[in-house]
Design a protein around this nucleic acid. Structure first.
Length: 963
RNA sequence: GGCGGUGUAGGCAAACUGGUAAAGCCGCUCGAUUCAAGAUCGAGUGCGUGUGGGUUCGAAUCCCACCGCCGCCA
């Protein structure tokens, strides 16, 4: 395609500079101590959420954030910072594996091809990443350290006294020193200072044991119970047809797999879990220390779901058993008229009477296959069965029936509730359906029905507590429960431990082995890392129709890889031995089977921002000094910021999971002394989505946008058939058939135009519709810039003459606007300022002073064009990229207009305008005087009495007058 | 249902802590260029901030209610 008349050769120029940047490593950032590193400059770390390298490549929605961070990184570099701006790939994951299953192509091949494609696309966008720091989570040298971090998790526990993760070795030493005893459930019981000094005449407190009294198996169980990574039987979404567990978001509302539409069963499976719940409190608290959008913080808080309440023990009538419940409303205890156990609750089989057993068992069987979402949906009709057993309400000794119902979940609280139908929506519905008693215990405000009232009020029917307001009652009853030894204040979280294993091939293998004989689990020694993902040729997990067939992950096919021999060293870690190798003396050779599960896709993205700092380090996941340099930020007041990455940009779809998981890992690494800050991301910015019109035919099938057309009367038709279409606005992507490729746009208008357009569309955080038609405006702008500098014969239209006063003032105003806008990521208004400046630059020859400053302002946004013009502007003096030039500064005195127009209102209505010199317009007395002296105003005011004159310096005068 | 966000010319948008609403881009109109169309260049073009109420000298901005759209959690 040839260039149209009046346009510059963007293709040539863009190719030239992209080549130059790569060849000269323009955007390589040296680490401290490396050649070219300037310690005098402050650091700035700009990070993008790295992409999954998909086969279809990028559409124009993807690079929105990348363009923004690229501009910001270039801006910060020109402002004198050492800027770190890396890119990589979150390359493990299901699509490559599915492709492998369907086409037999190894996931590594597909992934590498996709990465190459995506890298090329990003380079064509002119993104100035430090490509020397590029990483992929699938690189062996990367996931080696993901495995290493897993080992840190496995070998750590959460020390409640230190309120931090600590090595397991410390816990063992605490147990040996009897700072902790162990109760009958294997839980730690701290021994207070006062108790230890009292000497243990009477032996251990009731029901507890000392470490020395435990068998090796018991010790092991106690320790495993504390590890941050542990194996547990948990109910998971098991899809036998796919042979894998699925994340909740991979299961449809109908309880089938998103992919393939196979049935999904709820089933307890032994899985790796990460004890993120121990961090719930800190994850919530530290949100205060980071500069994140409030809605995102709120979403994280909601997800963590902290609630304060009380734990209360209900005795079971005619039994020794006790049912423990958590309630946020201990003040409604007198209104508890029945109890509900989750179907999975361990007491269900014990409590159920023979008469009810058949019915309960049937119910439990059905309920356990329902997803949590399904079970708790408010719209759903409540179900449940009576167990035949009764509990005793501890506040009034009433016998209340115990039911089983699936609206109570086992993972939340204790898996049992006291039901207060009068003041809880779900209990209310349930009680009405099953005709259970509903007793009012809260008096709502005047005129509100007490039935189903869940707000605060005044206690009634609550014995001695009558008349107390809800908050006061909560405190009093909690204290009372503690006195009685049947309850205590407790904080509960909605957050659950993190299900960390998948029965898939394309993920990080666990650095874990199982003793073939005993089944014991051992971590590998660090020196055995990496555990390299073996090559196999069939990537399918074993699928089945039968939900009870155990999972058989694809890694099981790598027989030689699975079976290893080795010995357990003095730290409890396993060293492997080659077939003919002998262990050090004293060590017994054991046969092991490797862990067959792999880690979920989230694992690699939990710490990638740390690896960028020191991506080729073979001795550590990151060098301590390098980590400290790049991750330590200071706030304006000089204090150290809680978060290390100075700007993290990505979509709001990661508001909860990725950001929570990464924060969790970061905190563990912080506790263990491996990183300098308690939080990973100091400032977070969510870019909006690029939406696009999508077209559907009469059957609702999406039609490719390129096949849709608007008719003259504003309807939409399908070009190929003429049938009518309906238009909707949605997120750009494959499924709506409305994706536009950046390559297409770059080819037609140039990359700089695409960049400027994407930034000009609207505020970065807003979602806005793509409109290919509008791009031409930005193309015209850049071409106009070109023509402003380059005459048709190719000579430079620049003069060494000084600019006139007006243009110089306009320049300083523009520098100010652009600088402030850039700092605040308001690129749309920065571009508007540049357009305005260029439009005002109606001179035959551009004064060099203006030209140089303007090109620098333009450089971050349209870097190719700016580089080319900069090189031409400097001619023989050109030495290096404009990226290293200093950002222009402005003179505040020159950034204001000499004369200001001030509107004059009478009673809020515009009546006249006055022109004042800048200093007079800033002075209220002079403004008032000038306004009242204005001929038009005097005329308007005749016959009126001036009551008040409001003068806003530099803005307006409003005269309040009455007739 | 709850929480959060958002609503400004035909479309996208701007408007700093309440102070001239609409900068800028698209579109549209006219002109130049062209055999012509497109592209390009130049000039022009929009009577009022979703609806209703309130606070204020003054509201796109703050408050209340309602409506529409988007997101998250149920």
């Amino acid at each position: 395609m040839s260039e149209s008349a009046g346009t510059y050769s963007f293709r040539e120029i863009e190719a030239k500079w992209q080549k130059h940047w790569l060849e000269t490593k323009t955007f390589h950032t040296p680490n401290p101590g490396e050649p070219g590193f300037d310690p005098a400059r402050p650091k700035f770390y700009v990070l993008d959420m790295f992409p999954y390298p998909s086969g279809v490549g990028l559409h124009v929605g993807h690079p929105l954030g990348y363009i923004a961070t690229d501009i910001y990184a270039r801006f910060k570099r020109m402002r004198g910072y050492n800027v770190l701006h890396p890119m990589g790939y979150d390359a493990f994951g299901l699509p490559a594996e599915q492709y492998a299953v369907e086409h037999g192509v190894p996931p590594r091949e597909t992934t590498e091809k996709n990465i190459a494609n995506m890298r090329a696309q990003m380079q064509r966008l002119g993104l100035g990443y430090d490509w020397d720091r590029e990483i992929a989570t699938t690189d062996v040298e990367y996931y080696r350290w993901t495995q290493w971090i897993f080992l840190q998790l496995y070998n750590s526990w959460y020390d409640p006294e230190a309120d931090a993760a600590r090595p397991i070795a410390e816990l063992i030493s605490h147990l040996e020193n009897e700072r902790y005893l162990v109760d009958f459930n294997g839980q730690l019981v701290p021994v207070g200072q006062s108790v230890t000094t009292q000497s243990w005449f009477g032996g251990s407190p009731a029901g507890t044991q000392r470490w020395t009294e435990l068998s090796p198996e018991q010790r092991r169980a106690v320790i495993d119970n504390q590890r941050l990574a542990y194996l547990d039987e948990v109910p998971v979404n098991w899809c036998p047809a796919l042979g894998t567990v699925l994340a909740n978001e991979e299961v449809t509302n109908e309880g089938r797999s998103e992919r393939g539409n196979y049935p999904v069963y709820r089933r307890p499976l032994r899985q790796w879990m990460l004890r993120i719940t121990r961090y719930a409190d800190r994850l919530e608290r530290d949100l205060e220390a980071v500069d994140w959008p409030e809605p995102i913080k709120l979403m994280q808080r909601n997800w963590i779901g902290r609630s304060e309440g009380a734990e209360v023990d209900f005795a079971v009538a005619d039994s020794e058993e006790v049912i423990r419940v958590f309630t946020t409303r201990p003040d409604t205890l007198f209104g508890a008229t029945y109890m509900v156990l989750a179907p999975e609750h361990e007491l269900v089989p014990t409590l159920t009477t023979d008469a009810q057993r058949a019915e309960v068992e049937r119910y439990v069987e059905v309920a356990r296959n329902r997803s949590d979402l399904e079970r708790t949906a408010e719209t759903r009709e409540k179900t449940g069965v009576f167990t035949g057993a009764y509990a005793i309400n501890p506040v009034n000794n009433e016998r209340i029936p115990i039911w089983v119902a699936d609206y109570v979940l086992t993972g939340y609280g204790t898996g049992a509730i006291m039901a207060v139908p009068a003041h809880d929506t779900r209990d209310f519905e349930f009680a009405r359906k099953f005709h259970l008693p509903i007793r009012q215990v809260v008096q709502p405000p005047e005129g509100v029905d007490w039935r189903g009232y869940v707000g605060d009020g005044i206690a009634v029917n609550s014995g001695e507590f009558d008349g107390l307001p809800t908050p006061e009652f909560k405190k009093r009853i909690t204290a009372w429960l503690e006195e009685q030894g049947i309850g205590k204040a407790r904080v509960n979280y909605k957050l659950r431990d993190w299900l960390f294993s998948r029965q898939r091939y394309w993920g990080e293998p666990f650095p874990i082995v199982h003793d073939v004989k005993t089944g014991e689990v051992f971590p590998l020694d660090e020196r055995e890392l990496p555990v390299v993902l073996p090559q196999i040729d069939d990537f399918r997990p074993r699928a089945s129709e039968d939900p009870d067939v155990p999972p058989a992950p694809p890694l099981g096919r790598a027989r030689e890889w699975v079976h290893v021999r080795g010995y357990v060293d003095e730290h409890g870690s396993v060293r492997l031995l080659s077939p003919d190798e002998v262990p050090p003396s004293g060590a017994a050779v054991r046969e092991f089977r490797r862990e067959l599960n792999t880690m979920p896709q989230w694992a690699g993205s939990c710490w990638y921002y740390l690896r960028y700092l020191d991506p080729r380090n073979e001795d550590a996941f990151v060098d301590t000094a390098i980590e400290h340099y790049w991750m330590t930020s200071r706030k304006a007041d000089g204090t150290v910021h809680a978060g290390g990455v100075d700007l993290y940009v990505g979509g709001a779809e990661h508001a909860v999971l990725h950001l929570l998981y990464a924060r969790f890992w970061h905190k563990v690494l912080f506790d263990l002394g491996y990183v300098s800050t308690p939080e990973p991301f100091g400032r977070l910015f969510n870019q909006g989505y690029i939406q696009a019109y999508a077209f559907q035919d009469a059957r609702g099938i999406y039609v490719d946008v390129r096949d849709a057309q608007e008719t003259e009367d504003g309807r939409f038709i399908r070009k190929s058939t003429g049938e009518p279409l309906t238009r909707t606005l949605g997120k750009m992507g494959k499924s709506l058939k409305n994706a536009v490729s950046p390559d297409e746009i770059g080819e037609e208008y140039g990359t700089d135009t695409l960049r400027v357009y994407e930034m000009y569309m609207g505020p970065l955080e807003a979602s806005k519709p793509w409109s290919t038609r509008d791009i031409v405006g930005m193309s015209r702008f850049l071409n106009a810039v070109w023509r402003r500098f380059v005459a048709e014969d190719g000579t430079l239209r620049v003069t060494n003459d000084a600019p006139d006063e007006g243009l110089r003032r306009l320049l300083h105003k523009t520098i100010k606007r652009v600088t402030v806008d850039m700092e605040n990521l308001r690129f749309n208004t920065a571009i508007a300022a540049l357009i305005q400046f260029n439009n005002s630059l109606k001179v035959d020859r551009v004064p060099r002073e203006l030209a140089a400053a303007f090109l620098k302002l333009l450089a971050p946004i349209a870097p190719h064009l700016a580089e080319e013009l900069w090189q031409r502007l400097l001619g023989a003096d050109w030495k290096r990229s404009i990226a290293f030039e200093d950002w222009p500064t402005y003179d505040e005195a020159l950034a204001v207009d000499l004369e200001v127009e001030i509107p004059v209102q009478i009673n809020g209505k515009l009546r006249s305008r006055i022109h004042l010199p800048a200093d007079a317009a800033a002075d209220q007395d002079q403004m008032r005087e000038a306004a009242l002296a204005n001929a038009r105003i005097r005329q308007e005011l005749s016959g009126m009495t001036v009551r008040k004159v409001i003068c806003v310096p530099g803005r307006l005068v409003n005269i309040v007058a009455t007739a």
